[in-house]
Amino acid sequence: MKITAFETRDDEKRAFKKLADSLNIEIVLINKPLSQHTIELAAGSQGVTVLGHSKVDEGILSKLKELDIHYLSTRTIGYNHIDLEAAKKLNIRISNACYEPHGVADYTVMLILMSLRKYKQALFRANVNDYSLKGLQGREMRDMTVGIIGTGKIGAKVIDNLSGFGCRILAYDTYRNGNILQKAEYVSLDELYQQSDIISLHVPLLDSTYQMISQDSIAKMKNGVILVNCARGELMNIADLIYAIEHEKIGALALDVFEKEEGIYHFDRRTDIIKNRDMAYIRQFPNVIMTQHIAFYTDRAVEEMVVCGVQSLHSFIKGEKASTELLY
């Protein structure tokens, strides 16, 4: 059995080798994304695995089928970079990854605390030997109402983490998670917007969630609200966020993701001209924290993503059901 892995990083190589040995299969590692220019490198493979920078459109999927490759996995939870309808039409089976929610949940709480305690401003001052206190007074979590939008694995773990701080926790989801009912109160989305001091997003990118944080929803929120997004950049309307920051409606913003981050995040672009004006402008605000899509990035999560990506292909090829199969 031969599998070709595209977009491989150095931090994944140990996990790939371990799987190749344990499953007695050949895994070819390619550091470039899957594209029309690299797809021939997968010739002779029964399956391929990618990360999020590979844009797997109908053309790529058709070429995979020509190469007699009928199985593809993405080592990411999200799968917006894959044309699932085309995959279904071409009868190419797709799987996504899963990993334990602890890393992203821990990171979310860290961003909340950094925003509450104005860490960015404090850090900038310390770098120029300014140790004054004015403007750095923070707030305590126990006095906050925190709204969690999306109570799947990650959202539920964030709630679990926050429950030890003594804050009031509100939750919204189209499907209620019975495991959190002792720690959080389910409310309508409008109630969550209106009552929360802090709002954190943990929903997938769907037509119904695209730019759900926009002028209309922000208008319903408290003045000085703190917004945190470790999910998908496209959940937020950036122009509306900038307006709300400039007019001090938003008290702090913490983003690990950003719309049109592709080709920027996870790359060294120090000497390049970056064509994302919103990203350049919004990061200069003293109350905005931005990190480069690393909430997921822990040793355990990286290994789990590789394991999912390879084992699901192994199951497909052997005629078994993959636990994370998308049913296409």
Results as ranks from 00 to 15, higher is better:
residue 2 K to H: 02
residue 2 K to I: 01
residue 5 A to Y: 03
residue 6 F to C: 05
residue 7 E to H: 13
residue 11 D to G: 01
residue 13 K to R: 11
residue 22 S to L: 02
residue 24 N to P: 00
residue 25 I to Q: 00
residue 25 I to K: 02
residue 26 E to G: 09
residue 32 K to N: 09
residue 33 P to W: 02
residue 34 L to E: 05
residue 42 A to R: 03
residue 45 S to L: 05
residue 46 Q to H: 08
residue 54 S to Q: 01
residue 54 S to Y: 03
residue 64 L to T: 01
residue 67 L to N: 08
residue 69 I to F: 02
residue 70 H to A: 08
residue 74 T to E: 04
residue 74 T to R: 08
residue 76 T to K: 14
residue 80 N to F: 03
residue 86 A to F: 08
residue 92 I to Y: 01
residue 93 R to C: 01
residue 97 A to V: 08
residue 97 A to F: 13
residue 98 C to L: 15
residue 98 C to R: 15
residue 101 P to K: 06
residue 101 P to T: 12
residue 107 Y to P: 14
residue 108 T to L: 04
residue 111 L to W: 05
residue 113 L to H: 12
residue 117 R to H: 14
residue 117 R to P: 12
residue 119 Y to S: 04
residue 122 A to Q: 03
residue 123 L to A: 10
residue 124 F to L: 15
residue 126 A to L: 13
residue 126 A to T: 14
residue 135 G to Q: 12
residue 140 E to T: 08
residue 143 D to Q: 14
residue 145 T to M: 10
residue 148 I to Q: 11
residue 149 I to C: 06
residue 150 G to A: 04
residue 153 K to C: 11
residue 161 N to D: 13
residue 169 I to Y: 00
residue 169 I to F: 07
residue 176 R to H: 14
residue 176 R to C: 11
residue 178 G to V: 10
residue 179 N to G: 10
residue 181 L to R: 14
residue 182 Q to A: 12
residue 182 Q to N: 13
residue 184 A to V: 07
residue 189 L to T: 08
residue 190 D to C: 10
residue 190 D to M: 06
residue 190 D to R: 13
residue 191 E to P: 11
residue 191 E to K: 12
residue 192 L to N: 06
residue 200 S to F: 02
residue 206 L to M: 14
residue 206 L to Q: 13
residue 208 S to Y: 03
residue 210 Y to L: 11
residue 212 M to I: 13
residue 221 M to D: 07
residue 222 K to M: 04
residue 223 N to T: 14
residue 226 I to W: 03
residue 229 N to Q: 00
residue 232 R to P: 07
residue 234 E to Q: 13
residue 238 I to R: 05
residue 239 A to K: 13
residue 239 A to G: 00
residue 242 I to S: 06
residue 243 Y to R: 15
residue 248 E to F: 09
residue 249 K to Y: 03
residue 250 I to F: 08
residue 253 L to E: 01
residue 255 L to G: 05
residue 257 V to R: 09
residue 261 E to F: 06
residue 267 F to N: 11
residue 269 R to K: 15
residue 269 R to S: 12
residue 272 D to F: 12
residue 272 D to V: 10
residue 272 D to K: 13
residue 274 I to R: 08
residue 275 K to W: 06
residue 276 N to K: 06
residue 277 R to P: 09
residue 279 M to G: 00
residue 279 M to P: 05
residue 280 A to I: 15
residue 283 R to Q: 15
residue 286 P to Y: 07
residue 286 P to K: 15
residue 289 I to S: 07
residue 290 M to C: 11
residue 303 E to S: 08
residue 305 M to C: 14
residue 306 V to F: 00
residue 307 V to Q: 09
residue 311 Q to R: 14
residue 311 Q to A: 00
residue 311 Q to F: 03
residue 311 Q to G: 02
residue 317 I to A: 04
residue 318 K to T: 15
residue 328 Y to V: 15
